[in-house]
Computed example of a mutant assay.
Amino acid sequence: MADKSRSVTRRKEKKERESAEAMKEVKNEGEKSKREKDRGEKDKGEVSSEAEASNGQNGEPQVEPMDLPPFEIIAGDRIDPFVFKFQFKNVEYSSGRNKTFLCYLVDRGNTPDGLLRGYLEDEHTGPHVEEAFFTQCLPHYDPAVKYTVTWYVSSSPCSACAAKIAEVLKVRKNIKMTVFAARLFEWEESEIQDGLKMLQAAGCKLRVMKPLDFSYTWDTFVEHEDQPLNLWEDCKDNYEYYHEKLSDILQ
Rank of each mutant, 00 (worst) to 15 (best):
K4G: 10
S5V: 11
R6L: 11
R17I: 08
E18C: 05
E18N: 04
E18K: 00
S19E: 14
A20E: 13
M23G: 09
N28M: 11
K32D: 15
R35T: 15
R39H: 14
K44M: 14
S48P: 01
S49P: 03
A51Q: 10
A51D: 12
N58R: 12
N58A: 14
L68M: 11
P69W: 06
E72A: 10
D77A: 13
F82S: 14
F84L: 06
F84H: 02
F86M: 05
N90I: 06
S95K: 07
T100G: 03
T100M: 01
L105P: 02
R108I: 04
N110F: 13
L116I: 05
L120I: 02
D122M: 02
G126N: 11
H128M: 10
E130L: 09
F133G: 11
C137E: 15
P139M: 03
A144N: 09
A144L: 15
V145K: 06
V149H: 00
I165Q: 03
V168G: 03
K170N: 07
V171K: 09
V171A: 05
V171C: 08
F180L: 06
A181H: 03
F185V: 01
W187K: 15
E189M: 14
S190E: 13
I192V: 12
I192K: 06
I192L: 09
Q193F: 00
Q200N: 08
A201Y: 06
G203F: 14
G203H: 05
K205R: 12
V208K: 06
V208A: 00
M209T: 03
F214P: 09
S215H: 12
D219W: 08
D219L: 07
V222I: 02
V222C: 02
E223I: 02
E225K: 13
D226K: 14
E233M: 10
E233I: 13
C235D: 00
Y242K: 02
I249S: 03
L250A: 00
